[in-house]
Amino acid sequence: MSLLLTIVQTILIGTGVLFFLVGSIGLLRFPDTYTRIHALTKADNLGLGMLVVGLLPFANSPQQALKILLCWVLILAASSVSAYLVANKLQNEEPDA
């Protein structure tokens, strides 16, 4: 049981890290701001979710698990709002882009 859990956790965390890596590569390689935002937010949020799910069984107490979930919610909210702001600003500055 615990072995199975460990394997699942490893896979989840590993995939999460992989998503972060892909997102970062996208940030560096994609040509313009919109696609960069796309790569970053999509890939990173999925990766973050996997990390959070993978880390939850490690939590020592319910409070700690709640804290991890809270982090997840906050990062999701912050990244979506900031992505929106960046895109919005860009749209206002150069409507054709």
Partner: peptide, 8 residues
């Protein structure tokens, strides 16, 4: 910009 943005 920030002042009037409803989402922010």
């Amino acid at each position: 910009d920030g002042g009037n943005d409803p989402i922010l």
